[in-house]
Design a protein around this nucleic acid. Structure first.
Ligand SMILES: [Mn+2]
Ligand SMILES: [Mn+2]
Ligand SMILES: [Mn+2]
Ligand SMILES: [Mn+2]
Lengths: 220, 220
DNA sequence: GGCTAAAGTTAAGCGTGCTTAAATATAATG
DNA sequence: CATTATATTTAAGCACGCTTAACTTTAGCC
């Protein structure tokens, strides 16, 4: 088993844990753009190596060992993202893909050195928490999808999903960024689309877009 | 054919060209720590893709296409080395290995951005020239292996071979670095070992060590 | 509970980049 | 030039991470 492949599987499983139900093989297959058969195959190997607890037709769960490995990969990824964004100036919508390749190549010492240069950041450029060397994961402010907000409410951006370039490019184009205030002016029942106001300008956005922006409620 | 593998083969072939005779399959195998059979195999594929001109039992030569690809890989490698060394502070003896992994993962745009941050460096931390975006390769000062120097001569370090960590660690320990002055105090005929003076201290070094340090002659 | 749709697994096979062992071509030497 | 040593290529096979197609289990629904 190659490290890159293993690391990608473990990261996907670990990141799903945020949502707190056991991940399904189908979801892994979708996230990684591979067949279900490939997932079954790999789960057997990960299980044999002791990174995943897996019994066929039953659930998929990281072992302590696998969880540690995965958490470190997520750490590596997010430190790269901050480094690329803050030090090298890579645009917001490009850091994820670039980091996704670099995360497998740097030594842990290099990652630690970068973290130090960045002054031990707690969140990546999309608002995701960065696991510390000791395993601690910073807490996120209480947040909900923008799509849940009611008309005439006000909120502030806490986190955005980082895996779709076009989405990131679009929202940054209309002024949405971390900690930006959003006023919800209108919510249409028939398609759940919203009219929002960002920094003085109004925009109409789909429910799908609003599903991927997570906000802290300021005024209900 | 995976990119990483292809890129490593092309880099090895390209770097050998510095020494200006056609590379032998055996040399590729040694440099990459693989069997001769594997090299034959890959040469066929590289030939089919038009990166290498190859006829069995005859020579191995990069095509224009292959040379461009390879030169860019060497560029990527060396820019990483400077970046790791100068910006992140990775120690001299570790930059090569780290860069060797990172060189396959960053986008060309990221490389260009790093190059800009570094103010378009001409040489990497070991004195090797960095090919520019347009393909130009900076000239090196005229240099010879330290092992060729005569007793009582003085020279200055232009370049060192970067592929052996222990060697780099050792020479940096005795004060050898780029542009450092070396006084050759004595050369022993029976084993070609040298007594050299670096920054006021004297050391005995083997011919093998001196073969890997390249110097500009200051005083014969 | 029985039936069906969805999820998951197995089987067979493919391309890649290696390996070792055997065969063959080239180079070096007397 | 003949012989031997070395370099290179071929052949067969292996581990990996995938694929599609067929099969099995589980979950959802009446
Ligand atoms: Mn990311
Ligand atoms: Mn992120
Ligand atoms: Mn190097
Ligand atoms: Mn170098």
């Amino acid at each position: 088993m190659t490290n890159i492949s293993k690391e990608d599987y473990l990261s996907v499983i670990f990141k799903h844990k945020d949502q707190n139900e056991e991940i399904k093989a189908t979801v892994i297959a979708e996230m990684m753009n591979i067949s279900g058969a490939a997932v079954t195959d790999m789960l057997k190997k990960l299980s044999k190596e002791g990174d995943v607890k897996y019994e066929k037709y039953k659930g998929i769960k990281l072992t302590k060992k696998g969880e540690n490995y995965a958490r470190n990969m997520v750490r590596r990824h997010r430190i790269w993202e901050v480094f690329l964004h803050d030090i090298i100036g890579v645009p917001w919508e490009k850091v994820h893909d670039e980091a996704h390749r670099l995360e497998h190549s740097a030594s842990d010492e290099l990652i630690d050195r970068m973290e130090e240069m960045l002054n031990f950041p707690e969140y990546d450029p999309h608002g995701d928490p960065i696991p510390a060397k000791n395993g601690m994961i910073p807490k996120l402010r209480k947040h909900v999808p923008l799509s849940c907000m009611k008309p005439d409410s006000v909120c502030s951006v806490v986190r955005v999903n980082d895996f779709h370039k076009e989405f990131l490019n679009y929202i940054s184009g209309i002024g949405i960024k971390l900690n930006e205030k959003i006023v919800v002016e209108e919510v249409r029942n028939f398609d759940k689309s919203l009219r929002i106001n960002v920094n003085g300008s109004s925009f109409d956005v789909s429910q799908k877009l609003a599903d991927n922006v997570f906000v802290e409620i300021v005024t209900i």
